[in-house]
Design a binder for these strands. Structure first.
Lengths: 341, 341
DNA sequence: TACATAATTGAAAGCGCTTTGGATGCCACT
DNA sequence: AGTGGCATCCAAAGCGCTTTCAATTATGTA
């Protein structure tokens, strides 16, 4: 069933039927009713590809999903997607997800943009110097970036959390508890948030004349295995750190396994603060020793970004171009006074 | 840059350029080279919406993502998606994901199908009596179902794992270890796999003249909270079960928390076997007491389903219509002899 | 009654691509 | 010279929708 058939069925022109369906005012209410009725009966749905071709809009936002045979799926991605979805469903938007090898990000994003399949783009996993930004700027298609690139003054639309502030505050808390030997378990070094978090830690330490030792920093994929390995490494150091900052509850999961295996007690021998993206599967309060965290909901960020993206496409704006969310510091049992030597 | 402009630039007709690009044989090799060269220089990309409109194909597979404001994101979904993506990227396919309220599944799926945005559909979370099947059958669009509906002889393309066999085997193992009091921690009752797993347990028990008590069965969302609650309930029963079968490592996560909180030892006081979807975040060997599991990779299923779907769209078939994968039973430390009373 | 105005509806031209059904020229073969 | 076959290329017709421009009818006003 297409427009032509439907209009013939109704004895109307395609023009009128189209207008009736799209809520144009210049069509008789009685006629509109008839059309709507016929749609119900026939189950007619406009062909999206044709709509897009005609209007240039198609009610979809595009994103690239990093993937590869060895590439481990990322709960963070899924959680963010849930947020996007929650908002998208309210506006009858959908996503076009282009899977791409992580090495092929820029090209994949460009393909997606030029394909004419999407109205707006979303980009995550920002790198310190992200080549995608230049491309996005040249594109004349709405986009929002999750995170920031470290380069320069950000002159692009983004939503980010105050990573530096979060880890600064967390470090301060540990300092106040008397800790002096710190370690940072971070995400991949090339990612923007990792750098900011590191800076937050360093600047808080600097205020007390402390520094983050080279060996007390790990940069790795945010998986629990990596958390385990990093913590094992930290625990073997001659001057074992007592305060651990951790970029994700996923890393913390492994880290804590290592702590337990070493026969140490979390919150006593070792204090740990993790960043909590509010993953349903890893609630900090459900850890055997509840985790002190810096918290910011990834899903909420997804919702918000979808709002901005969809709003922009629908010209429902204006939206603030740049948002920086504060995180919450929530103290639970994984932090305690520094142990006496 | 569109086809017309490109062809004018080259002094060729749109026809020839189109053919050159799509690998048709009736175009001079020299001409084809020129076209390809021009594409490189101009960065021309065909408009997908137009291609789809013209050909009816657009290189995309569609799926519905259940979501709602309260709806917790599901790691299983993300993991499966990773599998789909891994295969899709090899064929330059993408997904169209339509987020939909779980109550609106059928309608959402229909919208997606009729939208003309996708070449094939994927459907998961099969229900015992799934209304989507009838719709899919009426649609004349390729699809593959993950799981089966319980209704009747399955006459539709599916990929499923042998849920009944898996839980039958798991139960047998526990029986051999001398257990007599069983409990089943299952997924939502209306889902097909939950019923099959239950049947597997029941039939193994029946062979020994045992039955699954009513109070020893829980049906709930597969979250760790629900696992905790269910296990707490089991542990309070007057005749406490000693053998637990568990539909997911996610449930097991919570269940084990409950076991620990009750001061019981996994693998001694309580034996537990969980089904393992091979989620990177929940490796059974990483649990404090490594988990005995029935294993089948969700991601591998995603890869395979994408293969079948894409293959069908590309007429690269034929593919077996129905696949039933055996699961592996992997014995680790969470199972042990039944405790002496 | 005559004419301007508003309310409805339609015909047809795109949107950017694929594909059918010819053209055209060139060669080999009778 | 006449014929058929090949290799190349092109004009134009769609695919299913939106939107411009114009036509038609109904309504109100002088």
């Amino acid at each position: 069933m297409n427009l032509k058939q439907l209009s013939e069925l109704l004895g109307l022109s395609q023009t009128t039927v189209s207008r009736a369906l799209n809520g144009y005012p210049e069509v008789n209410e009685a006629t509109r009713e008839r059309v709507l009725q016929a749609v119900k009966e026939t189950g007619y749905r406009p062909n999206k590809a044709a709509q897009r071709l005609a209007t240039g809009k198609a009610g979809s936002i595009g994103l690239v999903m990093p993937t590869a045979p060895g590439h481990q799926s990322d709960v963070h991605f899924g959680e963010f997607l849930a947020g996007l979805g929650e908002e998208a469903v309210r506006h009858d938007f959908h996503f076009v997800i282009m899977p791409a090898d992580p090495d092929d990000e820029v090209a994949a994003l460009r393909r997606l943009a030029i394909s004419g399949n999407v109205d707006a783009l979303f980009v995550a996993y920002m790198r310190a110097h992200d080549p995608r930004l230049a491309m996005l700027k040249s594109l004349s298609m709405p986009y929002v970036v999750h995170g920031r690139s470290f380069d320069s003054e950000p002159d692009y639309p983004y939503l980010d959390i105050d990573n530096e502030g979060a880890f600064y505050d967390a470090t301060r808390l540990l300092l106040q508890l008397g800790h002096t030997r710190f370690a940072l378990m971070n995400g991949p070094m090339h990612l923007d948030f990792a750098i900011r978090r590191k800076n937050g830690v360093i600047s808080a330490l600097l205020e007390r004349g402390l520094a983050l030792e080279e060996g007390c920093m790990s940069h790795a994929l945010m998986t629990d295995e990596q958390g385990l390995l990093a913590m094992e490494h930290f625990l073997q150091l001659p001057e074992r750190p007592t305060a651990i900052l951790c970029s994700s509850t996923v890393l913390a999961l492994g880290a804590i396994r290592a702590v337990n295996q070493a026969g140490l007690r979390l919150g006593e021998d070792i204090s740990l603060i993790a960043h909590d993206d509010v993953l349903p599967l890893l609630k900090p309060e459900n850890f055997s020793v509840p985790l002190t965290t810096t918290r910011s909901s990834l899903r909420a960020a997804g919702v918000r970004i979808a709002q901005r993206l969809i709003g922009t496409v629908k010209h429902a704006g204006p939206f603030p171009d740049q948002e920086l969310w504060k995180t919450e510091l929530i103290v639970r049992a994984s932090t305690g006074p520094a142990p006496r030597p």
